[in-house]
Nucleic acid binder design. Sequence first.
DNA 1: GAATTATTAGGACATTTGTCCTAGGGCGTC
DNA 2: GACGCCCTAGGACAAATGTCCTAATAATTC
Lengths: 193, 193
Amino acid sequence: MPIASTRNLIIEKADALFYEGGFEATSFADIATAVGISRGNFYHHFKTKDDILDAVIVLRMERTRAMLDGWQAEGEGPRERILSFIHMLIANRAKIMAFGCPVGTLCSELAKLDHAAQKRATEILGLFRDWLAGQFHALGAGDQAEALALHLLAWSQGVAVMATAFRDEAFICSEVAGIERWMANATSLSHPV
Amino acid sequence: MPIASTRNLIIEKADALFYEGGFEATSFADIATAVGISRGNFYHHFKTKDDILDAVIVLRMERTRAMLDGWQAEGEGPRERILSFIHMLIANRAKIMAFGCPVGTLCSELAKLDHAAQKRATEILGLFRDWLAGQFHALGAGDQAEALALHLLAWSQGVAVMATAFRDEAFICSEVAGIERWMANATSLSHPV
DNA sequence: GAATTATTAGGACATTTGTCCTAGGGCGTC
DNA sequence: GACGCCCTAGGACAAATGTCCTAATAATTC
């Protein structure tokens, strides 16, 4: 856990505000107010808004890596690890219904803004993809591992978008159940989708 | 086809700009420039930015309804109609890779902005859901029809998000092929997912 | 304790934002 | 030809935006 320096506080609050309100709609003033510092102080830590975005992406990458490493170290099998990933949809359902998936919505927004950081944001999705591919590989999926990983990522992204649009908690649960059924079906894993 | 009045031109351009740049990031000036009129003229047609958004949503609803009605009238069976829906992912892949799904990204953005129009935007997704549910019902899915419709909608939304993030055309194609396989499998249709 | 650096507050700056007003031009109707 | 009405241009307006400067304070180093 990093020290609670002003800089880290800014990144923390910016992370939440970018998630809950979007990058474009969140202003310097919003973040400064949330942190409780003056706008002038802000400039000492971050020269531009894009610099904050970069820092937020770095933070999210570190947290994602830490989360994946944590699941990896828990000692259970790849099937259980994949379920840990999927159950994020349940654990974070309230926030997902309100704001969507933090990574997916950021990638979408940055794509529309034609923002240089979009590539880096996508790398977070890449972390999930590679980690999931590793799990599927361990399950014996062979060269289908990455395709299965991408498919599962897309599935969860779709659930997040729909859950946000319809504010439908039951839908999240039924889709997660569907993924669990899909995971339990060994045949599906050698023949993707 | 509506007449090309200034008002309709504004809605048309706003529709494209909202899609390609996002609602929040698109300004009055952007739309006025795209249409080729002065900002003052603008106000005569739309009092607020939200009014334009409403008009854009109405336009998209009409176009969606027209598209669905068109597929309905083509005389083929429900299975072919559902495939028409899915093949939008292929037909619009260039735009989807650049800007995502017009409806999904709008719903996500409006959710973050806590915008009053989010509900209306979601109704466009509702049109697709109800139409798809009708097709699944015609396929004999019974009371599973709506669940299947939501699942397929989520699937396509997920593909759109991933395609945007990774700019991956091959992924779109392979997922569409997966959906076609899923559609061809009658067993899946009585046991969703 | 002095010197240097890091951090802070407050505000300036030009630009852009959404919104709104006014004045005039083009139009058809009496 | 005069009237009224829709449409248009241009700009005014306060507020907010990202960016940047200066001066004062706090912390660290010697």
